[in-house]
Amino acid sequence: MKGSFHIIVQNERIKYEFVLRRNLTIIRGDSATGKTTLVDMIREYKSLGEGSGVELFCEKQCIVVEGNGWEKQLSDVGQSVVFVDEGNRFVSSVEFARFIQETDNYYVLVTREGLSALPYSVEEIYGIRSSGKYGGLKPLYHEMYQLYPDAANTSELKPKKIITEDSNAGYQFFANICNEIGIECVSAAGKSNICSELLKCKDENIVVIADGAAFGPEIEKVLKVIGQRKQVVLYLPESFEWLIIESGVLNDKEIKAMSEKWENYIESSQYFSWERFFTDLLIKKSSGGYLEYNKKNLNKAYLATAVKHKILKQVEWWKEA
């Protein structure tokens, strides 16, 4: 399944409206914001249709999966939006992650757990808030909002150290340019090691670079470790390959068109996470040219001054370095 889906769920008292853009969406946040009510309304509509008193508008089927029979419930479902409420232990299992990887559904998971087996984006973690858009006799309007907007926001921090999630081409790229300006660059060798790397460093100006497309499971922990430390900045592009693609160094018209709405081109059953799509796209588009991309070993052409500067032009914090 690919594309974005506008969903409206409402009854006489409550209205929810949101857009899903990727295969994995997480809803969390404070208690009593209406997460379970949303799932309950979808379950009732699926079970009784319009006779439930719930109205649901979505071009795809919406269903709720729960309990020990989740695998059986999912086995016949395709091209659907699947909701799972909190309280379902299977959501954090490796079996669930393996199973849904091979399906062509979108999943909306209500949970505060990190779910380390699922590569979801920092941009697709939402809370629900009542906007008060409708008052009086109209249903109370609920919308989803990004819990970590601009988690990768820029700042005027002058970094003394860079920590990269990547240990391959991305690390090699940033290590090279850090070396040029005399600052340290360390690979955490995986997103799950970033917290421990941060705990080792105190009172340093640090930029953490990780793949935002799959950093969802770590974002809350990393933000807790950062706490009030103003000298740590997160930089979370979709992935290093995305950074190259978006820089325009490949000068490819098809890429320009695709970048307007990536979600229309990324088939969820093929790409569990967008970072894999960007890697494949970059390899395909650069194949045979002087910028031919190799994820394991960075092609030196990416370190040529003009190319390097074009890639770094999009990196706001770099201008301060």
Binding site: R28, S31, A32, E86
Partner: peptide, 29 residues
């Protein structure tokens, strides 16, 4: 029909002999 968070808090208060998954409680709990 109360929130999952408040229901979990009441269980914790009233059934101290059990261990509950308080992940159902948000930061406001």
């Amino acid at each position: 029909s109360l929130s999952g968070g408040v229901k979990t808090l009441m269980l914790i208060e009233n059934r101290p002999d059990k261990v509950f998954n308080a992940t159902n409680c948000g930061n406001n709990c």
